[in-house]
Design a protein around this nucleic acid. Structure first.
Lengths: 162, 162
DNA sequence: CGGAATCCGCCACGATACTG
DNA sequence: CAGTATCGTGGCGGATTCCG
């Protein structure tokens, strides 16, 4: 570790310099990875999508998300606010009212994410099929392995009995 | 929970029906969420990006990723293979050789992800600034709160001394 | 070389209770 | 209503060992 000198063990050559992965997600401490981790977390994306439709209050979000705890919603919102993706406006009324909304940057992020969601929708069937096929294949291989093991066992048993 | 009837507490109206978030990531058991979680995990995206450049062997990937354990690389690859995003070819040689490559579907996924990475690169400075500003604001508020607490404390002390 | 199996520490998350 | 504080736990991921 920490060995920044052992580079390019088998560098493939025809890489578009504009999109070289080594530039961004290769190192765990890279900032891009951090941001990716944030939007990838369990709830952020969902909250962003909802807020992109219209600003919402805390409890509205809570009801809408279905499954999120107040703790996680609170944490998620504060993270997004800290990153400048969500704005938080407090109305000094009784009872208190707090509105959350997407900032312009948050909106551009959501726009960027949408194609990914579309991709997922379009391929979810194909992925499900791939999973089924894989599982069947693995099960079959396991079956064979078990059979062979039993065979070897029988042979060993006969050798001992002699 | 399990209460599917309590819908639309404050539905905002002007939603594009083609892109209604409620359709996909609202429910935790939604398949889209599962797939999103997969590509969002710690290593998958990185492996995909590397394999999109050229097929690689297990150990090559291990060296390239820098920080991944054999266990995680193995798990990640099997997951991706199961989802049909990565293909695994075993060469019956000594020593054994296993090549991993992106399937066509895997390639389309990576193509879909790239804009997101670009977005992140373009906004990472802005995000860093937002974080700094937020942290400073919070620190300042904490300072004020501490000062007020000390003031109240002093008042209470004087009242008791009387 | 390319894994699988086991053990284990850590922390992310959920449930609960309390505050302003 | 809009949160924070505290505690308990499951699961992820790392280190290590063994196998084909």
């Amino acid at each position: 570790m920490e060995d920044g000198t052992s580079r390019s063990p088998s560098y493939c050559g025809d890489t578009d310099p504009e999109h070289d992965p080594r530039q961004w997600y290769t190192r765990a401490d890279c900032e891009v990875r951090q941001i990716l981790d944030r939007i990838a977390d369990k709830w952020s994306l969902l909250v962003i999508a909802l807020l992109d439709q219209c600003p919402m209050r805390f409890t509205e979000l809570r009801r809408e998300v279905d499954g999120i705890s107040q703790r996680m919603l609170s944490k998620t919102l504060r993270c997004l606010e800290r990153d400048g993706l969500v704005s938080r406006t407090v109305h000094a009324t009784v009872p208190p009212r707090v509105d959350y909304a997407l900032t312009p940057m948050g909106q551009t992020l959501h726009a960027t994410i949408r194609p990914l969601v579309t991709w997922t929708e379009q391929h979810q069937r194909q992925i499900a099929e791939a999973r089924d096929a894989y599982d069947r294949r693995v099960a079959a291989e396991k079956e064979i392995a078990a059979r062979e093991a039993a065979e070897r066992d029988a042979i060993a048993r006969r050798a001992l009995a002699r």
